[in-house]
Design a protein around this nucleic acid. Structure first.
Lengths: 213, 213, 213, 213
DNA sequence: GTCTAATCGAGACGGTACGTCCCGTCTTAAT
DNA sequence: ATTAAGACGGGACGTACCGTCTCGATTAGAC
């Protein structure tokens, strides 16, 4: 379901509104065409006209339902499970293991050329349009961030982790370094780098029984 | 000095190449106009024609020396001390204090509207052009990263810090979270967030005298 | 009606083609602006961008319907009765009188600054583009030529004129000398010159009763 | 020798002026390059920069000695015997024969692709620049015209031709039809057409002994 | 033999126009 | 009422030349 809710007949009951209904087929074709073109040409050479042509759709049909190219891309990349692994960290073992499992899954997504291409596309879109940036945050960053924080909160209650640490700041460090790496166009993301970072972060978060504090 | 080195006669000594010399006045006017327009309109609405007009210069003079809009912006923002605080961490006290001083200076740059606007501009440029991304990395990220790593290396030698930690990964976490924050268009960067992150990171890096290692 | 027939659905009957129709208002505004600018600045300083601006139209709208500046000018100058007197020689008296009447009308057109400016414009356009030259021929030269030849043919049947003369060559001489004069930028066309030429030509064409033939 | 006389020391005697003298080699190279490029690309795609590059010469060297592209072309095409047959009509037989010989030579020049290409080039140049038009007239049209008129004047004195005819108008008809044909880009100039025209013109010029007139 | 100065090649400069591409809106006929 | 198609006014793109302006490097008569 589309996130850009312009549904013209949401208000109360009133008239069932006449005329042709929004074509679900068009919506799907547009988002699929967008993903194809992002993969083939990248976000920068993408054009609304190109998407419309590929989707066999009029340009107006796109403009009627989305406010900008960025939002189309955001929808195309972020809908359903399309984009990447959105699962929160598991709660199945010691916090260290759970966090590492989560971070590895994330890192593997960023190592996949297709997925990273899409991430790059939304990030480009976000960097030129605040509304798209908001979408990216709400539908990806924040989801990951919240999952991470929740798991750490649990660990804090279990005494595995210092309760006074700023879990949000830590989440931002992990997610931020991944996102920036993606936009930086720099070669090979190595999972070991993520591991090395976790080494430091998890040690820094560890509840220190010896000297209290 | 301009980074876009197109010097046609670098080979050996030989002839000093004929023809009129590149106009330094134009180079300066172009970069200044770019900075002005970035501040006034942002990177997205920036146009080569607009820069040329503002600088009182022909478009060709821009295209002759820079390959893309992104590279002009990179040069304009990153030349000399223009952009932000590039000083490495000091070596004047305990590593914790030095790193915090450095990170605070950095955070203050990111909190300044003018500076963050410029950072945002280069980041946008970088996200649409790998060559610009390379510039941003070489002339900003890498400089900061190297300074940070060098300071930690010194601390490791002094036994202040675990020598087996991946300092690069830590640097990337700090810089990445700042950079991503900048592009994410999200409100207010709070210096306290950076401090909170440092709390965790520095604790994680701390040499642990009790259990040796 | 526009001469630049790009009708995309001329084949058979089939579908009337979807989409917005060509704007007749734009077509008219473009041709009018072209005539104005030709009069104000002459063909050489004419620019597509200038025409578009004056007509309140996008450049693409010009390029969509005309292949070159020359063809716009040809259309602007040659449409309908705009350009000059296209009437064929009358058939109301002796051939000499009819031809002189026709030639005088023509010469008067070439003596009018506005009209000769337009002629000059199409001629310049024709001299740099074969397609425009073809237009000029089909829509002006050939019309005049055919009218002239037809009148002489009639005269030949009436025995006023030698039937074996090459009427086309004579028409070319009259029209060619006028056209060349127009492009040559030389001062004042005198109607007497045309008259003098007709003196010789009509005498040369005259049926010679004495020696038969 | 160049027609564009910018000789800076023509005035009186004064100083013979020091400094380097104009390079004859450059002058020749420029005109040769111009002829080559006219043949290869036509007048419209010709550029001063292109001529300079082909001639191995700086652009300023062209601008120093010629005021416009048109004048360079005029010089290149019209210098010496380069362009076409400039001989006046012979005076070796009856006027009819002499005129036909002259016209045939002219027609043959216009039938030669290389020569007609050059004529077309100067004509294009002339149609966009009055000064060039003047050159074309002085150095080609007028020469032919004067030769023709002189021969007819002689014939008039010999009683071969009506002395009261306007020889200039007749010359213009012959030359004009040839020139217009050249610019009209129309296929095949047939020598027979010229002959047909001469049939009429010479008959029209013929002194009529029988009925005086 | 210098001196002096015009000319040369090269090519960067401030500009203008090009023809293309895409934007976001609008119009049309068909469903 | 929405759709596919596609024309519209607008504006930026990157390129090609324009005619002018530095640059050293010749080149040649005047001193």
């Amino acid at each position: 379901m589309s996130q850009s809710s312009n549904n013209p007949s949401t208000s109360g009951v009133s008239r069932p509104s006449p005329g042709r209904k929004r074509s679900e087929a068009s919506r799907i074709a547009i988002l699929a065409a967008t993903r194809e073109l992002v993969a083939e040409q990248g976000y920068e050479k993408l054009s609304i006209g190109g998407i419309a042509a590929r989707a066999g759709v009029g340009k107006d049909t796109i403009y009627r339902w989305w406010p900008s190219k960025g939002m189309v891309v955001a929808d195309a990349v972020l809908e359903e499970a399309q984009p990447f692994h959105l699962a929160p960290p598991p709660q199945s073992g010691p916090v260290d293991e759970d966090i590492r499992a989560w971070a590895h899954a994330l890192a593997r997504d960023f190592a996949d050329p297709v997925r990273v291409g899409r991430i790059r596309a939304v990030t480009s879109a976000a960097s030129e349009d605040p509304a798209t940036a908001e979408q990216l945050y709400e539908r990806f960053t924040q989801v990951q961030r919240t999952g991470f924080i929740d798991r750490l909160r649990l660990a804090a209650e279990a005494g595995e982790v210092r309760p006074d640490a700023d879990f949000g700041a830590v989440a931002d460090a992990i997610l931020g370094s991944l996102m920036y790496w993606a936009t930086a166009h720099r070669a090979d993301l190595r999972v070991e780098s993520v591991d090395s970072l976790l080494d430091v972060l998890l040690r820094g978060l560890r509840a220190d029984r010896t000297d209290g504090q």
